[in-house]
């Protein structure tokens, strides 16, 4: 029954200037499962995902302490190249932000960055990842068109394909369906369930029903703290903490 822990967050604290944003966060993310992070707006979910990807490095005001073990390597205190660490995680944001280039080049971007430029191989890889994101059929005849000519739902799947193309083993998604129509949202959810065989997936959401549909593991956060975490069935149906119960009953968002 023992599951492998893919990401192990210990005593994580994050300060931005005088604000204490993440407070003593401890989270265990199981491998090849979908972990859903729930919590009201402003509780630090986005900040947590950015910390995982070391995007918090961009802001000189932010101080992070504690440890984040991924496959036994503490990515906060490592000698590994930060760009390689980021490539181990694909990132989906709240709205799709396609790169200002063609559909093809969006997916090829990560590959080209890491020096793979052979045309034939690139084309094969791009097709592969577009298929993985269920976008190939819709775009195969317009690969050279600008990515912004796609619909929002297609753009989000393109962002997924582009993230998968750098061959990560973790997918981080921050409310990935909040800007999408129901059909596109369902497509993304299905994709996650399909992808979890090969990836460890962390999804932030504020949609309870979405959590019920896709979560294996649930983390509930409130005001920068983890209130409760565990298997989805336990947390969603039989929460131990009063705050979690209130949230699940829709007392606050």
């Amino acid at each position: 029954m023992s599951e492998t822990i893919k990401i192990n967050i210990r005593d994580l604290n994050l300060h931005a200037g005088k604000n204490h944003i993440l407070k003593n966060v401890n989270i265990s993310v199981p491998k090849n499962k979908i972990t859903v992070i729930l919590g009201p707006s402003g509780c630090g979910k986005t900040t947590l995902l950015k910390t995982l990807n070391r995007l918090t490095d961009l802001n000189p005001e932010i101080r992070v302490t504690g440890s984040i073990q991924i496959d036994e390597e503490d990515i906060l205190h490592t000698t590994s190249d930060i760009h390689d660490i980021r490539k181990r995680m694909g990132l989906l944001s709240q709205r799709p932000y396609p790169l200002p280039m063609s559909i093809f080049n969006n997916v090829a971007f990560g590959l080209k960055i890491s020096g793979r430029r052979r045309k034939k191989i690139l084309h094969k890889r791009v097709e592969h990842y577009l298929r993985q994101a269920s976008l190939w059929d819709e775009v195969q005849h317009r690969l050279r068109e600008p990515a912004i000519s796609l619909s929002i739902g297609q753009q989000q799947r393109l962002c997924l394909a582009r993230g998968l193309a750098v061959d990560p083993d973790i997918i981080l998604a921050d409310e990935p369906t909040s800007a999408l129509d129901p059909v596109s949202s369902a497509a993304i959810e299905e994709k996650f369930i399909e992808l979890k065989n090969n990836y460890t997936i962390v999804v932030v959401t504020h949609i309870l029903r979405q959590a019920r549909r896709i979560a294996d593991h649930v983390v509930f956060m409130y005001m920068g703290e983890v209130v409760e975490q565990g298997p989805a069935a336990e947390i969603l149906h039989n929460p131990q903490m009063e705050k979690t119960r209130q949230y699940l009953n829709g007392a606050f968002y």
Binding site: K50, N53, L55, L58, H83, D84, R86, K87, M89, G90, L91, S93, Q94, R95, Y97, L99, P100, F109, G110, I113, S114, C159, R162, G163, A165, V166
Partner: peptide
């Protein structure tokens, strides 16, 4: 978020500036 997207794909800051 555009900068973050590019960085998350393994680009350096300078590559992000130049290419994105």
């Amino acid at each position: 978020e555009l900068t973050e997207a590019s960085l998350s794909l393994g680009a350096t800051h300078w590559q992000t500036i130049k290419r994105v």
